[in-house]
Amino acid sequence: MNGNYYSIDIWGLLIALAMVAIAAGISGIMRMGIGKTLLWSACRALLQLCAMGFVMAFVIKSNNPWFVLLLIAVMLVAAVQITLSRATGVPKGMAGPVLLSLVVTMLIMVSLVTELIIRPQPWYAPQLVVPLTGMLLGNTVSTLAVGLSRFFESMRERRDEVDTLLALGATAWEAARPSIVSSIRLGLLPTTASLASAGIVTVPGMMAGQVIAGGNPIDAAKYQFLILAVIAALTLLADSLIMSMVYKKCFTKDDQYQPVGQ
């Protein structure tokens, strides 16, 4: 303990890992088939988080804007790969639209949050920009993966309907719009659920972390609302942007329906 901050030593981490191992053992006894995956994922998460902790400590200590931008670029590339690995039933060639959607959301986040809302000095303050980028990317990745999967699945399910709409003179956008709306709504469900339950059912991660670290609970609540509001706005923007770029993949140059991602 340091002041009001409670640190976790190596034994604490080992106990936490042992809890996962016990859960994996229970899975093995019940023959669920997820024990090894659970244990491996926990070990990988521990290594990845510790590695990111060391990297962030270096970037914060250096206080160099180029290191901040380089770390964000690496995070963006990793986010594209994770999005495509989570999305199912999508066609090839989606890396470009996903990267563009993520870059746009990052630029807006940096511009609005750092320049208009928090206004840190310097503007690239690593202890602020890097964690915010990570939280936003994590939520945007999940939204894009769910949205893309749902869109192409919906287009396949609506094949006859889409053909009928096109035959009646509808444009490709008009024929694809129900699938676009469905995918965006589904992708935003976790975000809207978090907004609705924050402060009543749950104490979200950023607020809990700041309070545990000895921060002012009111300031922690303000930061948490900022994060939830930004995530809600920018995940909607990212999903809408990528849908506007990819819906044409379901149509030929003559606006005829063509199944993709099967």
Rank of each mutant, 00 (worst) to 15 (best):
Q224N: 03
I200F: 11
F251D: 03
S244V: 10
G199L: 04
V201S: 04
K222I: 12
V203D: 12
A213W: 00
I218Y: 07
V203R: 15
P217D: 05
D255H: 14
M243A: 09
T252Y: 03
M243C: 14
I200W: 06
A196S: 15
Y223P: 03
I200P: 12
G205D: 02
A220I: 01
F225P: 06
I227D: 07
K248G: 08
I227G: 07
I212E: 08
L186Q: 09
Y247N: 03
D254H: 09
A193H: 12
T191W: 13
L228E: 01
T191G: 12
A229D: 07
A196K: 15
A238V: 04
S244M: 10
I227P: 04
V211S: 04
P217C: 03
Q210T: 01
A229G: 11
S240C: 06
L189N: 15
G215R: 02
A193P: 12
I200H: 08
M243S: 09
A238T: 04
D254A: 12
I242C: 02
A221I: 04
L186I: 11
D219S: 12
A193M: 06
G215W: 03
A196H: 10
V246Q: 05
K222A: 13
T235W: 04
S240Y: 10
I227K: 06
K253N: 15
K249P: 08
P190Q: 06
G209F: 00
T202Q: 08
Y247E: 02
T191S: 07
Q210C: 01
L186H: 13
A238D: 07
D254F: 10
A208S: 12
V201L: 08
T202E: 10
A196W: 10
L186T: 15
G214K: 02
D219I: 10
P190W: 09
I231E: 05
V211Q: 10
D239F: 06
K248F: 05
T252M: 01
M206R: 01
G214A: 00
L228F: 05
G209D: 02
L237R: 10
G205L: 00
M206D: 02
Q258N: 10
D219Q: 13
M207R: 01
Y223L: 12
T252E: 02
Y257P: 11
L226W: 02
M245L: 08
T202F: 14
T192Y: 06
L195G: 06
T252D: 00
Q210I: 01
L236F: 14
A238C: 05
V211A: 04
A238S: 15
